[in-house]
């Protein structure tokens, strides 16, 4: 299986590669369009600020490639947010895979949300063998509201989407690569799609 982690300069991609290696697979880090297109599974990571990450994507031309991919694609954290239509962070137009606008948490809760929170309403094969209410590691100030594409929710002041799916595109707000054995299970489920 050819697994490509999109390497466009945003964030902690070593951790994702290591998590995949712990599952017994190898992953390639690449920003090459042909390499990405020919992968069996594509992981779209991202940590940092939305508008600068989007600029880096545009600089490599990946902003037009990612939405046309046909194999399973997993956006993680900012990767998931960039797959949405729009983000309040840096007034950023996203890739528009998911039909939802990303908003900032209101200051009724501490921002960023940092730590382990529960995922519920699990509605996808990527959650096979993961229990309702499992804890995932999250670090974020912006969130995707609930939509028809929501496949997992989390409560932090409000209920929001911690995972989205549309056709072959999956997005998770949490970090499966840092979320202990349940996180590893979700990554493995994705790789087995």
């Amino acid at each position: 299986m050819k697994i490509v982690i999109i390497n466009y300069g945003a964030g902690n991609i070593q951790s994702i590669r290591f998590a995949i290696e712990r599952l017994g697979y190898d992953a390639i880090l690449s920003n090459d369009v042909e390499e990405i297109k020919s992968a069996d599974k594509v992981i779209f990571p991202g940590v940092g600020e939305a508008s600068s990450a989007m600029k880096m994507l545009k600089a490599t031309g990946l902003d037009t490639v990612i939405p046309t991919l046909t194999q399973p694609v997993l956006g993680i954290c900012l990767g998931m947010q960039l797959m949405c239509k729009y983000s309040e962070e840096g007034d950023t137009t996203g890739l528009g895979v998911f039909d939802v606008d990303v908003k900032r948490f209101e200051n009724i809760v501490k921002v960023p949300q940092i730590g382990w929170n529960q995922i519920s309403g699990l509605g996808s094969k990527i959650f096979n063998n993961v229990k309702e209410g499992a804890y995932m590691y999250l670090v974020h100030s912006y969130y995707a509201p609930l939509t028809k594409e929501t496949i997992a929710t989390t409560e932090y002041g409000i209920q929001y989407s911690t995972a989205l799916q549309k056709a072959n595109f999956y997005g998770v707000q949490f970090h499966p690569e840092k979320s202990s054995t349940d996180g590893a299970q979700i990554l493995e489920n994705f790789l087995n799609l």
Partner: peptide, 11 residues
Amino acid sequence: VRDVAAQVNIP
């Protein structure tokens, strides 16, 4: 840091 990241699955 590299060794920890490779072998440990929490932040």
